[in-house]
Design a protein around this nucleic acid. Sequence first.
DNA 1: CCGCATCCGCTATGATACTG
DNA 2: CAGTATCATAGCGGATGCGG
Lengths: 117, 117
Amino acid sequence: MKENECPLYSSKIMLSIGDALEAVNGKWRIKIIAALLDEPKRFKQISNLIDGITDRMLSIELKKLEINLLVQRTSKYSSQAEYELTDHGRSLKPLIMELMNWGKLHREKVIGKQEVL
Amino acid sequence: MKENECPLYSSKIMLSIGDALEAVNGKWRIKIIAALLDEPKRFKQISNLIDGITDRMLSIELKKLEINLLVQRTSKYSSQAEYELTDHGRSLKPLIMELMNWGKLHREKVIGKQEVL
DNA sequence: CCGCATCCGCTATGATACTG
DNA sequence: CAGTATCATAGCGGATGCGG
């Protein structure tokens, strides 16, 4: 039975979706990963790329990403730490691409036409 | 300039990601869409497919999905309403597939190996 | 300047009971 | 069956300020 053809609402599927959401959900984590997709960056660089994020949230979310083995912190010296994606983190790239494309589409279709959400 | 080659952290990209996340974020909305991917369903059917969701949350999230034009409610009679995805909602299918596959991978790689998050 | 901790309000989510 | 109303609460996220 091919995975992609089996009932979309099976509980195994829901479980997988739940797992993925847990690792990645919230306002910031996807954006942090997107910011790191091309190359390792330092705290402040990431912070500058993500509009609206506070140091506090960036710090917290980076930690969660480390726990989930998506981001690896390479502390050279103190105050010189760099953050980079693990291979596993990089495996999110297709997902992020999809999200990006869909977001563009969604903006065109829905946002702006109704001024809400 | 090809979209997939341009800097991943450009603010336009971040904006798209933000738009997508807004439409879809939270614990439940992706799962609700997944539950509706194959065919229209009624309130209770959806609720039964999504482990842990309460009537209250399902009601609230369905409303948000309607506002974002992802789900359409076809009220036949009262107490016989059906929910189905709009075309726009269906356009999330590749994203959900990606999420699902990645979630499976993530569970194998990370969850269970460390019992956390 | 870099990252993190404390304090705190607010929003998202939950439990439960109720209505048509 | 298909929701809504009320109440409670954990965690998110912002402001600010501390310690390298």
